[in-house]
Design a binder for these strands. Structure first.
Lengths: 184, 184
DNA sequence: CCAAGAAGTATACAGCTGTAGACTTGACTC
DNA sequence: GAGTCAAGTCTACAGCTGTATACTTCTTGG
């Protein structure tokens, strides 16, 4: 039994919620489930975060804000993204990526709106900042779409083609795609 | 009140289910909801399809099998896919695409498995058949990933960047991407 | 030492979920 | 026209959902 500590408990709930929402998606997770694996009652979750939706919003904010920066070098950006993408969607990789959180929760419209705001405020923003200021209107948004799609097919759907493909080949093709999208 | 007709009723349930699953996703739709908008009781659905999961499997099978063929000409394939993708994800387009069915139901693992089988048996298969027999190992799977990702960001998430972008520019960039993936 | 306020819990509600078993209604054949 | 089998419905169950109100327990400051 943890000694009473509001801040630590809040953090425990956030951790538990991030894990659960990422693993199963917004709709498939109950507040009681999150509360229990944080060692707490369901009502305390609502007391701290107002509602399930409020909790989700804080989880998204935290997950997207601390997103690991890939590179600040626009020259290697396409290659870096391709490499990280293949690595993080590998069958044996850890499953706590913000993209999974997004894809599994996006079917719920209210969750989707929260996700859209978070993405545009953090992820897309970062991608735009790294690129040279010239023509980066649709490029970053399209690159995010490609990343999301690769996550979907390789992880959610479990495409056997993408599972057994040579990772070096996948990475090379993706590098070309990102180069096309982030160039000029 | 429709006269009793097993075949017609079955079809009505399938139509209703396709609409509902596509609009809200597997988990967010109840059997009663599907039954009601088919003018029928929930139990009849289970009587015909065994279970919600069985119903979903039939819906997926039907949706993917009758999928509209884009082209049989590999030369214009990339351009055709890009054009169709931009058109069908437009804000004012009809919302009954199999990709929406997939993306909104994929968070449920049992639905995902059904979807994976359907995609590989029908959609991916067709894409492979159209392409020249040479090197089409990862190409079609990656192209499907790009399509899925574009659907996610433009329709589920509602990216403002992709919403306000010039459709001609989007189409041009996507054409390049598909050309890269489906070439050689 | 002991109050006061914060941290956390218990109970409850109204409504939903998928589906099992027993039932009724209708159309069509003889 | 009556009987029969399929087509369709009713009721029910056990369990879940998010959250509101009222309660208890712990910790800490004076």
């Amino acid at each position: 039994m943890r000694p009473r500590n509001a801040a630590a408990t809040r953090e425990a709930i956030l951790d538990s919620a991030l894990e659960a929402f990422t693993r199963a998606g917004y709709d498939a997770v109950g507040v009681r489930e999150i509360a229990e694996s944080a060692g707490v009652t369901a009502m305390l979750v609502n007391r701290y975060f107002g509602s399930k939706e409020g909790l989700f919003a804080e989880v998204v904010e935290a997950a997207m804000a601390e997103r690991t920066v890939l590179t600040d070098d626009p020259a290697t950006l396409a290659a870096d993204i391709a490499a990280a993408l293949v690595r993080r969607t590998a069958p044996d990789a850890g499953r706590l990526d913000p993209f999974l959180l997004m894809l599994r929760s996006a079917p719920n419209p209210r969750a989707a709106e929260i996700l859209r705001a978070g993405i545009e405020r953090h992820v897309e923003k970062h991608l735009i900042d790294v690129l040279p200021a010239k023509k980066h209107t649709e490029g970053p948004a399209l690159a995010l779409a490609v990343i999301a799609g690769f996550w979907v097919m390789r992880t959610l759907i479990g495409s056997t083609e993408l599972a057994r493909a040579d990772e070096a080949v996948l990475e090379a093709k993706l590098r070309k795609v990102f180069a096309v999208l982030l160039a000029e």
